[in-house]
Design a protein around this nucleic acid. Structure first.
Lengths: 196, 196, 196, 196
DNA sequence: GATGAATGAGCATTCATTCAT
DNA sequence: TATGAATGAATGCTCATTCAT
């Protein structure tokens, strides 16, 4: 007999892997319970619906990431090197969990359509907030002379897209990216651009 | 009575809008034929399956974009300005059609799961090729001293992600980005990075 | 191939018999389509839900009965015999269809619980209206001196119950009541009571 | 800790109210145990099944009523007044418990379909017996010259229906009938009919 | 070619009941 | 005795696809 929490975790874990592998719509309750080795009704003891598992996964993913993010501190005596260091830290914290769990990464970039809206909306809101926050940071950076003059909105969107691209790559089996290299490279790109 | 091609095009167009708005799984054959004002069986006169319409849309989208892309020419007498100009042109050509048709943009970044593999695979292959091509270009650029030393694979992935982010933003009603600003901004980011 | 209306009627008829025999909750869609010899989805071409068939049956039953009822005319020169004749006519019209279709009778007295409320409510409203109408008729009859002084509400309820009892008996295979005798007997009971 | 019998009674009482309010099929075990504040498995300690509780309720209801009924005594020196008095007494005894417990009344007239046959059959048998007994009484009454010549079967069915109608009205919140008036009225109807 | 009726495989969900403690 | 976790059979319903005209 399993502890109650373990059971829930097992279902969650199986669902995560299946959703990551076959997508939300490609995964049936039958698949999940077979993988988790529980009876049909048992699934519903722990989750009210298929959508509910997905919600839980999204929530957990967001929680995992968001809790790690720290605001970038700036001020009088904050130089370029300092900002880049903070950037590196945030990137490491954000990407770390995704690197160690490709399924989480997959869920994170999944654009699941037509699930009970809430779930997708949560992710959308997250990315939207990320963009807004970056936008404001860029504005502040410009006023401090740390950031070159740019269209902050477009740039923010581009950076978030860049990160999503990385996460998508992580979630793909064959890319095999190295965590530290990624962090360094992203930082460098942001810092220097690509073309000399 | 409609000409045969018009009928097909009508179905395709309606399907595109519906897929863009509600997603592949959120759109039923019933939705499509209602919108296109054709009978159920008529749909199957023109397309073998729901997946087939999606395939056709993907194909058309890819064709539209790919045909516009030109290889970036480099050589002895190619300077930084020249390369950036070519980059701008390619970006304009690639993003142009997507800007004028947000539904196309949506399809383009859609990560539809569990459609008969082929469709998703085509998009994946496209993005994969894009990454590979960029990777090679970066390598070449490095050897020519035009590109700073970097991990070409990661950087390529990041850039493609950046573009995807932009396209995703285009496909979203509320972002309202300006075409030329976007092209300039992306170019600038690639050229200079963000942090001074 | 069946005409469209025939198909619907066939389903309706089978559903009626099954509902009458096993009750609403004791009848599954599987039962209905097996009896009607149609495919599962075909059922849903004609009815939106299991409850919808029941609604249709109730509606049809009520329509059948209600359309036959005529208001009892009274006035200066209306004597006891005349009123009783009108009563007989109404009884005949109301009970006739139920006598010729025991399943209809069964549906008519069925007190189906927890179907999408509407259906049950319709029947309840019908019986409620019947009671109210009878109540008013009794009141009028009293003021005309045709009806003995009585509690019109209780009496109305009792009469409607009497009728329901008859209909229930009709719907039972083994009672084998004679239509004309029933009409006469009810009229006589109303007219004379039972105990001398 | 509750005494064993109290537990059982509590479950029974809650079930009765729920069945009366939402019907048998509209009431789940979950509803019952929540209302009775007992654990799921505890329910099955006291009752073997959902149907069993219903059986018990029917049994108790029938017991309550049947035990009160007294045979109507007739004989040489029994006049009309005497018979009516006995009728009144029986009615009072039968309707009394139902008036004081509308839920009991509801159960009593419930025509629950597709419960494990036994329960419904018991009620059916009860009503059948009632009809038969009335039928015989009417026959006897006729031979004694107390009852007018009538079709005893139909009349018996009608009278039982009348009573059922009253009980149904009792079980409905909004009717608010007065016990004594009902008894008087029924007696009067039986004695005199309605139309003068 | 054009149509709409017909189809069945598939799915999420419910619920009375049993098991292990 | 009392419990709550676990269960699987059953059910209503959907939807892409095919058939007959």
């Amino acid at each position: 007999m399993m502890a109650k929490e373990d059971r829930q975790r097992a279902i969650l874990e199986c669902a995560k892997q299946l959703f990551a592998a076959r997508g939300y719509h490609g995964t049936s309750i039958a698949d999940i319970i077979k993988e988790a080795a529980v009876a049909r009704a048992t699934f519903y003891v722990y989750f009210n619906s298929k959508a509910a598992v997905f919600h839980a996964l999204i929530d957990s993913a967001l929680e995992t990431i968001v809790s790690k993010l720290k605001p970038v501190l700036t001020g009088a005596n904050v130089d370029r090197e300092n900002v880049l260091r903070q950037l590196r830290v945030n990137l490491s914290h954000a990407l770390g969990p995704l690197f160690s769990d490709p399924c989480l990464a997959k869920i994170f970039v999944s654009e699941v359509e037509s699930v009970d809206d809430d779930a997708t909306k949560k992710l959308k809101v997250f990315y939207g907030n990320l963009v807004t926050w970056l936008e404001e940071s860029l504005e502040e950076g410009m006023s401090l002379g740390i950031v070159r003059k740019c269209n902050s909105r477009i740039t923010a969107i581009a950076i978030v897209g860049m990160l999503r691209g990385i996460v998508l790559a992580i979630s793909d089996d064959n890319h095999q990216l190295d965590f530290h290299e990624v962090v360094e490279e992203i930082t460098a790109n942001v810092a220097q651009g690509i073309i000399i």
